[in-house]
């Protein structure tokens, strides 16, 4: 048996994985990270809250999601930082003048060359620009290309511009019997009647589990007409009885 690997700052990888569950950042300057994802560091690094005055200019270019501000910090200084999250798989991704949307709880850290924006879809964050970011997933991440339908719980994020929409299994839920089945589970519901559908060019990122990370309470965006997400996001396929036009068509 070979002995375990012992790391120190000269052997730690530069902006790469230490093992599938831990990521090392060679910090020289600033990085954004989500609170509590740093497990250890060498060197001289300080952690500032987003509201820290000296960071104003950085925040104005790279951080555009005020409702998430309480969950993020800026690491500043020189040294090596090790990031990890509940021993989930951790991966880094390079964006080149692109965009990627990811579930907010899955994003660990990103370089300030990227700009973080809140997605129109509640609970998701979009990164725009060029640079590196680190995200966690329960089990390895799989990249698939649209058109595809995915389980809501397995979705980690998507890159470029596929169009995400809800898909309900119409054939299965049709008619009165189907409606009863849907609402009561009598007669067997497969639990897969509701999916996210992606069409268009791009990549969809999936995790190999249906375990969701705990959603962070992020508050709601400003209450203005036309902004989705005023109600808590609906997940797990549990439909509310009021389905509008779709509901009427289904016989509710």
């Amino acid at each position: 048996m070979t002995g375990p690997v012992i790391w120190d700052p000269s052997t730690l990888p530069v902006d790469d994985n230490v093992n599938p569950y831990a990521f090392s950042v060679a910090l020289d300057g600033r990085w954004f990270l989500q609170k509590g994802k740093m497990v250890a560091y060498y060197g001289n690094i300080s952690f500032h809250p987003i509201g820290y005055g000296a960071l104003d200019s950085l925040i104005s270019t790279s951080f555009h999601s005020p409702t998430h501000a309480a969950d993020w910090v800026v690491a500043e200084g020189r040294g090596h930082m090790i990031l990890a999250d509940r021993s989930y798989d951790v991966n880094s991704y390079d964006l080149e003048n692109g965009n990627l949307t990811v579930r907010s709880g899955n994003l660990l850290a990103y370089a300030p060359t990227l700009a973080l924006k809140q997605s129109i879809i509640p609970g998701f964050l979009t990164l725009i620009g060029s640079g590196k970011f680190v995200a966690a997933s329960n089990g390895p991440v799989h990249f698939v290309e649209p058109p595809i339908r995915v389980d809501p719980q397995a979705l980690v994020g998507w890159a470029d511009c596929p169009s995400p929409c809800h898909h309900f299994d119409h054939a299965y839920m049709r008619g009165v019997l189907g409606g009863v089945r849907r609402l009561t589970g009598i007669g067997g519901a497969s639990g897969e009647e509701h999916q996210f559908e992606f069409v268009g060019a791009g990549q969809v990122l999936l995790q190999s589990t249906e375990v969701l990370m705990t959603e962070l309470a992020t508050g709601l965006v400003a209450d203005e007409p036309g902004i989705p997400g005023q109600a808590p996001p609906q997940q797990g396929g549990q439909m509310r009885p009021n389905l509008g036009a779709l509901g009427q068509q289904l016989g509710f």
């Binding site: 375990p4 690997v5 012992i6 790391w7 120190d8 700052p9 230490v18 093992n19 831990a22 509590g36 740093m38 497990v39 250890a40 560091y41 060498y42 090790i82």
Partner: peptide
């Protein structure tokens, strides 16, 4: 992850 600490190389851990 096993991290070495040496003189002049302090480590801070959560």
């Amino acid at each position: 992850v096993i991290l070495r600490v040496a003189r002049g190389l302090p480590l801070r851990v959560d």
